[in-house]
Design a protein around this nucleic acid. Sequence first.
DNA 1: AAATGAACCTGTTTGC
DNA 2: TGCAAACAGGTTCATT
Length: 298
Amino acid sequence: MPELPEVEIVKEGLRKVIKPGVTIEKIQFRRKDLRSPLPTRLKNRIIHQKILDIQRRAKYILFDFENVVMISHLGMTGTWRVVAMDQQLGLHDHVVLTLSNGKVLAYNDPRRFGVFDIIPKPGFSADKRFCHLGPEPFSETFDVEYFWQRSRKKVTAIKTFIMDQRFVVGVGNIYASEALYRAGVSPLLTAGNINREQITLLIGAIQQVLKQSIDAGGSSISDYRGVDEVSGSFQDKFLVYGRAGEPCHKCSRAIRAKVISGRSTFWCVNCQKTSRKKITEQKNYGHTRKNLSSTSGT
DNA sequence: AAATGAACCTGTTTGC
DNA sequence: TGCAAACAGGTTCATT
């Protein structure tokens, strides 16, 4: 479910409920594990301790304590919500926090692909879930030169490449298709073949689509909701995702769908090119058009 | 080493 | 209508 914008919205929602200095009075694990075991033995490291801040790194929400960091990853179906006074806990409410301000927060996750853990600070930066993460997409580090260097010699599809959290964090399956469409780059382009102009467009498109989605409260498809139960609206702004067969908003040709590296991918064959070079060749050498189009294979 | 596909789960949608 | 298959926002592990 949640890519960077949705995680950002959930993090902000949690910040509104958990002001600095609030403590967790009680923590309840209603099963022993999610994707990985729940940190039963480390519970006492956060009980009655002040939450200093709540931040986001990649698709993880970080609860900062004096000596530990409590982390939450929403996987595909994870949600946090404030449990109403008279509300019963549900089947998939796996983690329940009772706060010193009287509020109760529940982490719900039907598929249990999420992560909830407590990491002592001395080992945080070396933690295997964080040490290999790439730069944040809005950071200075994520620039054309970085993209160029990292992508050289890569044989994988550009769509798969930008979803690799070791390269850049936060881009998931929906925003990968959306960013590539906005940049006019085919998801099937070999990552190592992307040129500087396309990189510039793609970085801009990734940043733009993520920002616009955050501003819209994220995308609410299926079960995603913010902490306050309010839905985001960016799903209404999807230009290609989930629109197989429907007309491209630019050229009216049918949006194509294909599974790439196991993930559904949507794009416009006409507006998104596999090679900048080929477009130029088509313009300059029209008489070879037939030959080129037979190998362009978008 | 890098790249691909399977696996981890449950719930919902799609198709026969 | 009913049931089975397909599919879903992510990450990690095994295999090639």
